[in-house]
């Protein structure tokens, strides 16, 4: 479990995160949602240890990140997989080399063991024939799948995804969402997804944390989000006519 307690983060005089407290559970897809500028990315980067925070704590299975030594932080980071918004694949490496990179950095496996593992994860994300392609030769959806493969190749305990569906068509978005949910369930990892894709919220949001102006405004799940009367959440989630209709139908069905 990841436990976040009273997290505060500022840039200069501007306070971005204003005391966020929440937990992210094992084997669940946890979504952080909110409008642009609500502090989602800053929150995610604090969780990843890319930003230092002024107050509060983040504990990974009881280990408080800020109290770890550099070596312990390195060990913890070896257990973290991250899928960046733009995939962040290394341009100079082939897809197979990109996926193999964490294994080279963190394990002492032989070359054949690493190749077997890369074959396995690339098959897992349905990219069995893409080993020798360069990232620039892959489509947006393929790049996202390679990023997922790279994130899970070292059997992480924690998987973070920043806007995994941005720039993808609805069908590919669904493929990526399902893939992330399957992997979370299969490997029983803690997955935290930063998203403002409402389809993802409805499909895979086993836990949803809604941020507004740096505060945690609401938390729940894809089921409770239909029933909530929190105006900020309903204004954000049901801003389109389609989702308003979906919500109306859901409420009518469950009355």
């Amino acid at each position: 479990m990841i436990e976040v307690t009273d997290l505060h983060k500022s840039f200069g005089d501007t306070e971005i995160l204003k005391g966020i407290t929440t937990t992210f559970d094992k084997g669940k897809t946890n979504l952080i949602i909110g409008q642009s500028g609500s502090g989602k990315t800053v929150f995610l980067k604090c969780l990843l240890g890319l930003f230092e925070y002024e107050q509060g704590s983040i504990a990974y299975d009881g280990k408080i990140f800020s109290k770890l030594s550099d070596a312990q932080k390195r060990d913890l980071r070896a257990e973290i997989g991250m899928v960046f918004q733009g995939s962040a694949l290394f341009d100079s490496m082939t897809i197979a080399q990109n996926v193999m990179f964490p294994l080279k950095m963190f394990t002492k496996q032989s070359k054949s063991e690493m190749e077997d593992r890369v074959d396995f994860v690339l098959k897992r994300v349905n990219l069995a024939d893409a080993h020798n392609k360069m990232p620039s030769e892959a489509s947006g959806g393929m790049q996202k799948r390679v990023a997922i493969a790279r994130a899970i190749v070292n059997n992480p305990k924690y998987l973070f995804c920043d806007e995994p569906n941005s720039g993808l068509d609805p069908k590919t978005s669904m493929v990526i969402d399902n893939l992330i949910q399957e992997i979370t369930d299969e490997y029983q990892i803690i997955t935290v997804i930063n998203s403002h894709d409402m389809n993802s919220v409805m499909e895979i949001g086993e836990k949803i944390v809604f941020l507004k102006n740096g505060y945690k405004e609401w938390e729940g799940s894809k089921d409770t989000i239909f029933k909530t009367d929190n105006k900020s959440v309903t204004d954000f989630v049901y801003s389109s006519n389609l989702f308003k209709k979906v919500r109306r139908m859901y409420i009518e069905e469950h009355q």
Partner: peptide
């Protein structure tokens, strides 16, 4: 974000 990716990997 390739540099961030390196940092996240430790």
């Amino acid at each position: 974000e390739q540099i961030d990716a390196l940092e996240v990997m430790g």
